[in-house]
Design a protein around this nucleic acid. Sequence first.
DNA 1: GTCCAGGCATGCA
DNA 2: TGCATGCATGGA
Length: 272
Amino acid sequence: MDIKYIDNDIVLKNVKCLDLDLTLDCGQAFRWKKEEDNSWSGVVNGVFLNIKKDGDTFILKNTTKQDFESIWCHYFDFDKDYVEICNRLKQDKLLSPTVDRYYGIRILNQDSWEALCTFVISQQNNIKRIKGIVDRLCQAYGEKVREGWYSFPTAERLSTLTVEDFEKLGTGYRAKYLEQLSKGVARGEIDLQKIKGLPLNEARQELLKIFGVGIKVANCALLFGFEFYDAFPVDVWMKRVMEYYPNGLPKCFEGIEGIAQQYLFHWARNNL
DNA sequence: GTCCAGGCATGCA
DNA sequence: TGCATGCATGGA
């Protein structure tokens, strides 16, 4: 990858395996919006970004070298060799055509708190409605970053809300989960940084102690917010996919089960 | 009207 | 440990 800093923009050349449409709208993050010019806008860690693909070049608008190095490089997982990863995954018969068909899906390294919170909202819910709830949550309780754009609210801010406040956002029966989760994190009873440093199984056990967090939400949070690429979330779509793997997951998934999962999830949603 | 969505807590065996 | 059931909401 070749990086050029031009005025307030950053131009990335020779970026391999990144499809913005697939990556930003495949159900791992819920806050990116596609603009009329086919670019994508979003807020991560309280910082706004507009990113556009032009051939093999990506243009990051109105950002800085510092933000690229501290946020975007890691967020888009640019340090990982997805070409090598995709080649490994293609050793599997089902994934081989799937990786070709949906080439360019990456795992976004999201903030732990945001990932955990949004995937609690996601349970027994569809992606369109999840996005609506998360939007309302950010508008109501996030910090305004620019006109129409808000940060994801902190646990401290949300810890001041009542169950009724969460219900007003349309969270339904998940309101009580969000209320307790916010207070637990704000009080430090749930230590996300500590969980991030644990081995996978221990980290998962810690998350499973949280009211409203089961195995699926835990694995999503671990994969998308805690950098556990070997976490393998199984939802209603993935249960259908699992019929294709009666003997368990193939050897070539080892260590990158979560990335394989994301391709399979996308395939299932579009083909099953 | 019924069914379903990136499920989980609860109660009961 | 495993299985049945209720749960909020809105789109198809």
